[in-house]
Computed example of a mutant assay.
Amino acid sequence: MTSRHDPHTGLHSEQGARPGEHPGRASDPVVKVHDLAWLEFRKPDLERAERFAGAFGFTSVLRTADELHLRCTDPGSPCVLIRRGPRSRFVGPAFRAADRQDLLRLADATDRQVTPLPESLGGVTVDLTDPSGARVRVVSDTHELPALAAQEPQTLNFGRDAARVNAVQRPPREPAGVQRLGHVVLQTTKYLETLNWYLKNLGLVVSDFLYYPGQRDRGPVMSFIRCDRGRTPADHHTLALVLGPADRYVHSAYQVADLDALAAGGEHLLDQGYRRSWGIGRHIQGSQIFDYWRDPDGFLVEHFSDGDLFDCTLEPGWAPLTTSGLAQWGPPATKDFLGISPGRESLRELRAVIGALRADNEFDVRRLRGLLKAGTS
């Protein structure tokens, strides 16, 4: 009798760092940001963007000829800001400071100014640029929108533990109520420099490192990074960075109530003619139940539920980066999700590979071989 090989063996990254490997945190960061505040985009068609946003589960709170603000049901600032522009592009993330004093400290350390935000948002910001060229805002004292009525999770029966009796289960096929912004994933040609910049300036800490199979000696190529709130648990990752041939947005993720909200919301998106990229499944790093979609401008966005929460005591895990290691269960990762579907996107990535190999950055020929190996592992 032969035993089946489990492809997830060794991929859950419970193993820690070896001597001399990256510690996953800065020894004396400038500040420790509290959370993501919002993401900013430019898009040419705000009407189209707003239609998708409603189907995905956002609520519009500001709509002008040139600006669209989208909010979640949790209290706080809008979580997505879209301004009209000649082409679609990601501008950058905004992180929320623990208090205004941290903004003053950050401004002094980076030789930047604390400047007011527009009245529609309120508060102040310090605007920085990370080594990959993305604008990074750290904000404080913004207007607080009150909570909206949230989509309630379903009452579930677990084996003999029956919480629902004489009642049926009928989750409505409607937009999944987006509760909050969870994380953003960025690709960079300067992975290590960019990683260290975020750890030093914003006080983020690494939850998990991934490395190319057979290249652990060269260091990690992806990191899942969380906010350091001390003993208060935070999302497994608020930011993820991955080495690649171009500096670009990869995806952003938004929490919903539960699996039923995610699945029924996905059926609603399909009914409206939108395209699923990959899902439904459960990740390994972060453990989230996930479902990925392409918006009309080609941006990848994720519904997620049931993610991991870590406090400051956990050290980074280490695991190889493989395609099969992206999920514990679910369908195989699609070509669309991986960015290799035939079309403009894959041609753009191919041109980026050629350009990166000719430039002075961390994406060299050996890293390209590692990426290709990871894609077939």
Rank of each mutant, 00 (worst) to 15 (best):
R173E: 14
S77Y: 00
I289E: 11
P75D: 10
A240T: 10
Y191D: 04
A163R: 13
A94L: 06
Q272K: 14
A333L: 13
G279S: 08
V124Y: 07
V365L: 15
C72I: 05
E21G: 08
R366L: 10
C72Y: 03
L192H: 14
I340N: 10
T189E: 13
Y274N: 03
Q285P: 09
W197R: 03
R170S: 12
T125K: 04
G10H: 07
G16M: 03
R170Y: 10
D336M: 12
V365S: 11
W197K: 09
R367G: 00
D308F: 03
V256P: 00
R216H: 06
A107F: 02
D364C: 01
D258V: 03
P245Y: 01
R229G: 10
P23S: 13
G298I: 04
S324Q: 12
Q154R: 11
E40W: 01
V168D: 14
Y212Q: 05
D141I: 02
D235E: 14
N196I: 01
K190H: 15
C72T: 15
D102W: 06
L241S: 07
R25N: 00
C312R: 13
A97K: 06
L121W: 07
F304Y: 13
Q179G: 01
W329F: 15
H5W: 06
L243P: 06
Q288K: 04
L239T: 01
S88M: 03
D247P: 06
S77V: 12
W278C: 10
I82N: 05
P331W: 00
E302C: 07
P131F: 04
N361T: 00
Q15R: 11
F158K: 12
A240C: 05
P332F: 02
N166Y: 11
G279L: 05
A162I: 14
V242N: 11
T142F: 06
A162T: 12
P78Y: 09
K373M: 04
R100T: 15
P75T: 04
S341W: 09
V124E: 14
A176C: 06
F310N: 13
V221R: 06
L145P: 00
G273K: 05
P153S: 07
L156C: 05
Q15A: 14
T155R: 14
R248V: 13
G122H: 01
H69L: 15
S77M: 06
A356Q: 03
G54I: 02
